[in-house]
Amino acid sequence: MTVMYCVHCGKGVADADHSRCAAPQSTLEPPRYCAQCARRMIVQVTPSGWTARCSRHGETTSRDDPAAAR
């Protein structure tokens, strides 16, 4: 999967400032935007993980490759 958009702010990975998205605080945030289309996802956090659903690209979870999720 190609990561085109930042999962924390939804902007293009190449064409925006993501310094805030890279701050320590972001490690406490599940992904909020789809990495493929930047749609805002429906995210459910549970005690041991999270599930994020894009209406177009389906579900990613904390069990998936963290690199793909971030």
Binding site: G10, R32, Y33, R40, I42, Q44, T46, P47, S48
Partner: peptide, 20 residues
């Protein structure tokens, strides 16, 4: 904020309680 509304279903709740 980027948070969208979501409901956790009963199986999800049971699972979360079990994991806890």
């Amino acid at each position: 904020t980027p948070v969208r509304a979501a409901w956790l279903d009963i199986p999800g709740l049971v699972k979360a309680a079990r994991e806890t």
